[in-house]
Amino acid sequence: MGNEVLGAAARITTRGRAGVVVAVKGGESFVGTCEPILTVDGEGPERRVTVTDFFLEAETVTVSRFAEFVAATGYVTEAEKFGCAAVFVGLLEDQKLIAENVARTPWWVRVDGAVWNMPEGPGSSIEDRMDHTVTQVSWNDALAFAAWVGGRLPTEAEWEHAARGGNRRRKYPWGNEEPTDDEVFCNIWQGRFPQVNTLADGYFGTAPSRSFTPTGDGFYNLSGNVWEWTSDPFRVRSLSRQAKLRNEQSKKSADKVLKGGSFLCHKSYCYRYRIAARMGLSPDSASSNTGFRIAYDAQPCEGDAI
């Protein structure tokens, strides 16, 4: 039996427990920025887009909702099939679980048996984080969940439009005020990455999906906490030489766009919790800081004028 979520001139029927859904008004909008900071990622140039009305869940999909999906369908995630996933080394209580270090980013390690319900590998648990964002889920896993509930992943343009509250030019979902190691707006790293985290925001890893002050429209954690999968392929449109090279590489790959940054972002290392920031990752990848939220098409209710 599905759950009906009512919005302005729309009815959404979902399977499982429905998330809180926010109606987003479409119109002429834009993606990217005229003042890119990480040009190699293709943050710029700003480009105009037209966004149709849509609905977006207020928070990322939680562990408890994903558990319900698995229980109802018997779904097996890609990390389970591969037998391993990427884990932030600081989250490991048992360093013996490290199967392999990533050469240029030694704070990332491969852990055999790391999956959505044992995010740090054998012996780890989700019992105390059922209200946290589910992690260790690939793009393909996110698509499977979205199809089950009757939704989809948002496009990059939809994600940015929702984060900006329309076509406003603001740097972060809350405005333009810069987070610092003392001024906390979201779940990112405070201190010296990756050696010291002062925990000024209260979290070393993920935070509950519904934490920190929501945007004026009611969205939680669009910046920080976990990277969020979108439906779009990762392409770089910047004109810089380095970005052109990366664009050629991206055309040959199947990487998908992620938005929002994560609890591992810091201005000195991964300044990607800005709205225009982005990252590309292969669709079968799963990690400690990757999750997703669900979008829905706005469909007219019976009897509504079209």
Rank of each mutant, 00 (worst) to 15 (best):
M1I: 08
A10F: 12
A10P: 01
R15E: 15
R15H: 13
G19D: 12
V21L: 14
V22P: 04
K25S: 12
V31W: 00
T33Q: 06
T33V: 06
I37N: 03
L38P: 02
V40Y: 14
E43P: 00
E43D: 06
P45V: 06
R47D: 08
T50H: 13
D53C: 04
F54V: 05
F55M: 14
L56W: 03
A58N: 05
V61F: 02
R65A: 08
A67G: 05
A71I: 00
G74T: 05
Y75Q: 05
K81S: 11
F82Y: 10
F82P: 02
C84G: 09
A85V: 06
A86G: 13
V87D: 02
G90H: 05
E93S: 12
D94A: 08
A99Q: 10
E100C: 12
T105F: 14
W116M: 01
W116Q: 03
W116H: 04
N117L: 01
E120I: 01
G123W: 00
M130N: 05
D131F: 01
D131E: 15
H132P: 01
T133Y: 02
T133R: 07
V134K: 01
Q136M: 04
W139N: 08
N140I: 09
A142R: 01
A142P: 03
A142M: 04
A146E: 01
A147I: 08
W148Y: 09
V149F: 04
V149D: 04
V149Q: 04
L153N: 03
T155I: 12
T155S: 15
A157K: 02
A157L: 08
W159R: 06
A162Q: 05
A162D: 02
R164V: 09
R170D: 02
R170T: 11
P173A: 01
G175P: 06
G175D: 05
D181R: 06
E183H: 15
N187G: 07
W189E: 06
P194Q: 08
N197F: 01
T198Y: 11
L199Y: 10
S209T: 09
R210Q: 10
T213F: 09
T213R: 13
P214I: 08
D217C: 12
G218E: 06
Y220M: 07
N221A: 09
G224V: 01
V226M: 01
W229T: 07
T230C: 08
S231R: 14
S238N: 10
L239R: 15
A243S: 12
K244M: 13
R246Q: 15
N247G: 15
S250M: 13
D255S: 13
D255T: 10
L258K: 11
G260K: 07
G261Y: 00
C265W: 08
H266L: 04
H266D: 09
Y271D: 13
R272A: 08
R272P: 02
Y273V: 03
Y273I: 01
A277C: 10
S282Y: 14
D284F: 09
F292Q: 05
R293F: 02
R293Y: 00
A295S: 11
Y296T: 01
P300H: 06
G303F: 10
D304L: 13
